[in-house]
């Protein structure tokens, strides 16, 4: 556990460095806008408010996810996991897709848990299905969707149905991928002072051990989360609000636009139904559903957070698979409705 961290740690920091130019560009952009627009701070204020509110909203869930991840790390052994996870590929994926009823958390909390599960030797397709399905197929999200689309209950059925199928399908497709490609880069990071793995003693000892792992998880994932927040806030303050609407007229483009919107806006899956509701009058039902199933499965900050664990190629393939399945769901639904 201890020895390999110095290596993976460096690898992570090198990959993070590649993100700095982006962040610097972002800050430059803000400065240039400020210079051009003079005293008008509206753009900057919007960026600041967006970044701060997403952080304050999502940080508790990131912390909760890190805590759960630490608890799994310390108290759930590889053997236990291997025993309870079905051996069969299909059964494993099916079981993982319904875990949202056991752990009803949204996407910020699932990434730290998935990292830990993969580190514990849980089959990748099971972990990925868990990550995709839990933020969507869970009681809180079902309720908020039902509430948001109170007048259109079919939207909730479509979301659950297509969402479940999409998560299972992507999970099964992942299980067919070449093992080399899907090998995780780094799994968890022990604190760099090289602690020993003596069994924790007493209450304080136990809490201390959990805290130590939670804090390093929080740092690991948190910095990618922060890059995601910064980029997402930039997008929200730069892209004119009307653009998304303007493109919504086209039946083909609308589905694509909504998937792109879901990716770049990084809205929490507990809130996205309410956002989608405001698009209802203009966008096709397929576009709404594509938005509602793609968003919880993948967005910009999740992509960045996944890069703490997986190879770039795998992440690209995964995002691609999710996009294709979501787009297909949207188009199928539109075709079926128009029939």
């Amino acid at each position: 556990m201890v020895s390999r961290h110095s290596v993976t740690d460096k690898a992570i920091d090198v990959r993070l460095v590649t993100l700095y130019p982006l962040a610097i560009l972002g800050v430059l952009f803000i400065v240039i806008r400020y210079v051009i627009e003079g005293a008008d701070l509206t753009f900057l204020r919007k960026f600041a408010l967006t970044a701060l509110s997403i952080t304050v909203e999502a940080l508790p869930f990131l912390v909760i996810g890190s805590l759960l991840s630490a608890v799994i790390h310390i108290y759930v052994s590889e053997e236990t996991l291997a025993r309870i996870i079905p051996k069969s590929r299909v059964l494993g994926v099916l079981a993982a897709s319904l875990m949202g009823f056991v752990v009803p958390v949204c996407d910020c909390a699932t990434v730290p848990i998935v990292r830990r599960l993969v580190g514990k030797g849980v089959p990748l397709h099971v972990a990925i299905t868990f990550m995709l399905a839990v933020p969507m197929i869970n009681p809180l999200v079902i309720f908020s969707t039902w509430f948001a689309f109170y007048q259109y209950p079919t939207i909730t059925y479509y979301r659950m149905g297509f969402g479940l199928v999409a998560a299972i399908l992507v999970g099964l497709l992942v299980s067919l991928l070449d093992g080399n490609q899907t090998k995780p880069v780094a799994v968890g990071r022990a604190p760099e002072h090289g602690h020993s793995h003596e069994p924790a003693r007493g209450f304080v000892g136990h809490v201390g051990a959990v805290a130590e792992h939670a804090t390093s998880d929080l740092y690991d994932i948190g910095r990618y989360f922060m890059v995601g927040v910064i980029l997402s806030s930039l997008v929200q303050s730069v892209v004119p609000s009307g653009l998304l609407y303007a493109l919504g007229h086209n039946p083909i483009l609308s589905v694509l636009v909504m998937v792109l919107g879901a990716y770049f806006l990084s809205i929490c899956s507990q809130a996205d139904a309410f956002i989608a509701r405001t698009f209802m009058a203009q966008f096709s039902t397929g576009a709404i559903i594509a938005f509602l199933i793609f968003g919880p499965m993948m967005d910009m900050k999740n992509t960045l957070m996944l890069s703490t664990t997986f190879r770039k190629r795998f992440i690209v393939v995964l995002v691609g698979l999710i996009a294709v399945v979501s787009l297909a769901s949207g188009y199928l639904l539109n075709a079926w409705i128009a029939r």
Binding site: A23, L41, L44, R45, F47, A48, L49, A51, L52, S53, T55, G222, R223, M226, V227, V229, I230
Partner: peptide
């Protein structure tokens, strides 16, 4: 990175 949302907090 963790400091960025803070740095802009007074504005928001």
């Amino acid at each position: 990175l963790f400091v960025v949302p803070f740095a802009f907090a007074p504005l928001s």
